[in-house]
Design a protein around this nucleic acid. Sequence first.
DNA 1: CTGAAAGCGCTAACAC
DNA 2: GTGTTAGCGCTTTCAG
Lengths: 316, 316
Amino acid sequence: MANIHDIAKRAGVSVSTVSRVLNHNPYVSESKRAAVQRVIEELDYTPNRSAVDLIRRETRSIGVIMPYNNNQAFDQLLHGVLNGSVERDYTVTVLPTKYDAVKELDCLNMLKKKQLDSIIIASRSNAWDAIIPYTKYGTIIACEFTDHPEIGCAYIDRYGSYVETFQLLKNKGHSRVAFTTARGEESNSTQLTLKAYRQVFGDFLPEYHIRDCYGIDDGVRAAQCLLHSDRRPTAVYANGDEVAAGIYQYARSIELAVPDDLAIIGQENQPIGIGLQLSTVNHQLVKVGEQAFYLAIEKSKAKIEIPYHILVRQSI
Amino acid sequence: MANIHDIAKRAGVSVSTVSRVLNHNPYVSESKRAAVQRVIEELDYTPNRSAVDLIRRETRSIGVIMPYNNNQAFDQLLHGVLNGSVERDYTVTVLPTKYDAVKELDCLNMLKKKQLDSIIIASRSNAWDAIIPYTKYGTIIACEFTDHPEIGCAYIDRYGSYVETFQLLKNKGHSRVAFTTARGEESNSTQLTLKAYRQVFGDFLPEYHIRDCYGIDDGVRAAQCLLHSDRRPTAVYANGDEVAAGIYQYARSIELAVPDDLAIIGQENQPIGIGLQLSTVNHQLVKVGEQAFYLAIEKSKAKIEIPYHILVRQSI
DNA sequence: CTGAAAGCGCTAACAC
DNA sequence: GTGTTAGCGCTTTCAG
């Protein structure tokens, strides 16, 4: 493969001139520019990206830390990041961690290797204290709120969203309200869900909290646990529309009417919920991803809140 | 940031020795190795990845070309690729093209820039003739069969799968069979679907082919077109379980019984189909992705077929 | 075992 | 405008 010297020699100019035409530097005569351009095409030359990155000290590529990629919510987020990357000609690398804290740190270390300019954390396992030191090596953007000054945030007011949703259910006369979460108390979302629940309803039966919910099948499992209880809940707030769909389906299968016997509301406005006419709260994760991307490339430490919308359809 | 020279100086050795310990070269005395190691920790040193890539002439990172990331099928494939990458310590970059042929070529060009060692094509817009030239710069793996000797393939026998599915429907007594596809004739899958259909049923009513189907809502739309026709189909083969779910739902909403009034079979064994007990043909896209990954890192040009499975559940 | 030295391919002062 | 030159941070002969 030809390099910049080959081009220079063949075009009868210096490497600086070649570099200048490559980088659209205006201080090149039209004749030399044309000559260089011609040779570039003749030799089918393309600059070596590693060499450019090395000397420029940046890669124009960013990473997205997410536990899984086969998850609707993370996928929406990634979609937003990709939208931005296409727009601004960045490259995005997906960094799956499966919630392994050590692996997560390895990913952050790519900043130090100068392999990535910045990293967007869709969800994390490490405490902020363990993450902060890496801000020394590159930009770190969180998709949740944290007041640490070194971290830019594109976040949703989850606590507000959860409180508002539970309040909505309460206003509709529900007092026995169950809910599902993905992870347990180690998760920020779960913590906020619990806090919001207590804020609205006070204490709750532990059996009203179903964990490890990700997809439809988990929703079915949740419904099985919930709907045969003596104190069957009259409403459930699911942590995603797929989970909500599973609950819906199981409820229907045992002849419960939605929303009369059981009100259901999900999250993220996913396709399946649209189809089933399930109410949902749309956290606009695609927008969160887009915003996170822009914060990342601007090396911003701003805290940007993305508004959420509660969509009331047939299921509550 | 410290570099290899700083480490060498401070440890009282040459850069070669530092490089050796970095790369676990056995020809280093224990004492020097220890000294170097200590300084590396003292100075919190990590090798610069661009410099390493530049001189090694490889990046240990691969790209995945896919039109969208918010698509269940591509997502499964990507998931497989990521599985492999975690295992073998590679990095994966997602290259969304939105089926823009020019953008697709730009992505392939990352091989030439030496930014990526190889590229997996999940779905393409360009003809093979336009793609082949890039094999000169790196490994290209396809997730479909092509007999070109320069391209490694991890593929499913789609034609066989489609024929078998249509035949299954025919054996069950269906003669009015409709089907959905994502893209039109420019797509390989669509072409094979049409070919398989003709093989089993001979010619068909154009109205039995619904295009642009990706999610549940497209399934609903397809059902609306299909189910009010004079020659209403008695079965439909959907190009994904989400689409199948949309069809299922609409059918139920107009009081059609599944499978008695309408048989439905989807593809990819997606969560929604499991929930709805829809029959499906599982093309094992995660395995396709994993296999594609291994072909990529081994720079293999092998053609590996991944078996598919027809899962008969309640809907046919 | 160890070190000197020659690059990898490119950018960016700096001098003309 | 243009060329010379000094790196960027690393690996890898090649001698010793």
